[in-house]
Design a protein around this nucleic acid. Sequence first.
DNA 1: AGCCACTTCTG
DNA 2: AGAAGTGGC
Length: 684
Amino acid sequence: MSGGRCSIVWLRRDLRVEDNPALAAGVRAGAIVAVFIWAPEEEGLYYPGRVSRWWLKHSLAHLDAFLRTLGTSLVTKRSNDSISSLLEVVKSTGATQLFFNHLYDPISLVRDQRAKEVLTAQGVAVRSFNADLLYEPWEVHDGEGRPFTTFAAFWDRCLSMSYDPEAPLLPPKRIISADVSRCPSDTLVFEDESEKGSNALLARAWSPGWSNADKALTTFINGPLIEYSKNRRKADSATTSFLSPHLHFGEVSVRKVFHLVRMKQVLWANEGNKAGEESVNLFLGSIGLREYSRYMSFNHPQSHERPLLGHLKYFPWVVDESYFKIWRQGRTGYPLVDAGMRELWATGWLHDRIRVVVSSFFVKVLLLPWRWGMKYFWDTLLDADLESDALGWQYISGTLPDGRELDRIDNPQFEGYKFDPNGEYVRRWLPELARLPTEWIHHPWNAPESVLQAAGIELGSNYPLPIVEIDAAKARLQEALSQMWQHEAASRAAIENEMEEGLGDSSEYAPIAFPEDTQMETDHEPVRNNPVNTVTRRYEDQMVPSMTSSLVRVDDEETSVGLRNSAADDSRAEVPTNINVNVTEEPREPHGHDVMQTVRTINTFPQFNFAMGPRDSEDSTAESSSSSKRERDGGVVPVWSPSSSNYSEQFTGEDNGIGTSSSYLQRHPQSHQLVNWRRLSQTG
DNA sequence: AGCCACTTCTG
DNA sequence: AGAAGTGGC
């Protein structure tokens, strides 16, 4: 129990005891100090949102309680520099080893590599592990050792690797605690007073914590999984796995998910249950996308802020904050979009299909910069996940070679009848439309006046007219795209000229700044409590898939009403007058950290290069991937090196957005040129 | 066989 | 949105 020769187990987004390789290694090595460091400022722009912090708080409490039954407890530190905190823990406990599990977001990649260097230099033996993925990103590549750039190829490879993902580890039976008497915990504060009321209702629907995650997994696999393929297209079906927040915080191991699901697959295959097999494949596909998001983040660490196919750099975004606000508040006039945005706003949850609907509406119809939307998702989603969300937004923005086509606009009206054929979802979230017959529920603007009247709807008054008509949106998008191609061509020509003259690339990526946080924060939805035709429901009645209630700010009616006057002169806003009070309050934006920071970061972001070195190698020289090597426990780890490596070429091309040797774009000329050619031939 | 309408899929 | 597939006649 005394100091010395103990190990630090640094827990981050791996808040579980089962199948936690870092924890297992620590326990195997003797006494441990389990540490969680809360240093959200390190995340820059991506300071976790309110609901995400709520989850984390409960997940940590849950983990701590369990660790206590095993013989230790969780040491918590409040910090703005994780590495200094680690050094402190080393000093106060005499630890000689550090174990942690890999993360793949760009900030962690850099920080963890530095942690490794700094701690190693202090004589601490550092080892890191794969706990988040079936295969490490550097294990999966094509025949030439290059990373895949399309999902299908990536996932095929994953499913046909010569070795299976590691079998899950059992939880330790007992843990020997190191002496932490001189290493006091800090009290971590995850929510401020104003957030408590909003958070109170979350606990009715969700149970954070690793053992609850395990239960959720079991429930899903023994229940809804078999119906997954049938039900996945319903907007409000309660048959998704609901595992994503658990997975985000590593409360459950994907490897365990994978193995359990595979067992079902074998079972159903033997029974000849085609639907079951199909369901498994689809579900595994969504696990695969999560894997792929880490893979992409690792191989392209800037993919959360830069489009992977560089042409989008020239897209003339409509930088219109009032559009942004209308989208957030669910007042676009398209019922499916609005219902989704109200649900997100009220519950922090959205079915995957609806995420695609609202985000593609955001990009393709409103022409708003995708990173704003991504940031809003980050701030409001319970399962906000940088890698997954970046992949998702790039997918719908048309910047992946295998994503949605750039010029495709999905019509929310048709999608409405596809995902919500009976209008139940819309009626749940847009009570002002509740009395509209299904025939018109997804396109009220076409409904005869008599029908609208009977339903108590006055378009433009208590429910908005479409913010942009779809035909107009199509025209605007075409125009924007042809502008984009022209700029791109001009820029390409300019760069070629400069190259000839021996000048470097001068085109800097100029990201669009986020709206000021303060603006977003004071941006409360005005409530016009029009009693006429209001479907009065108490927030308790609100039904969400698996969520009975919403993130309602119960204490806020006064505030909202108080804002009524100031909102009245917002001429553009067609505010629904009889919307349910419980969804009228926009969630607070996260802490007022410096949003502009990202913008600066973009330009100062280090060039990432990942060389695959031998284990914990001192020499960070670039070395080609160790393809056939299969090592897990700290075996093959990414070594961050400022020098060039085989992976570096992947990014350097992207910096100017126009492929040089082997940039992403260059490897997918068809997706670029095809569209480009088509566009130009139509417009020119 | 050949045509059309309808469904489903597309990360 | 558009391709590809299915099934009816």
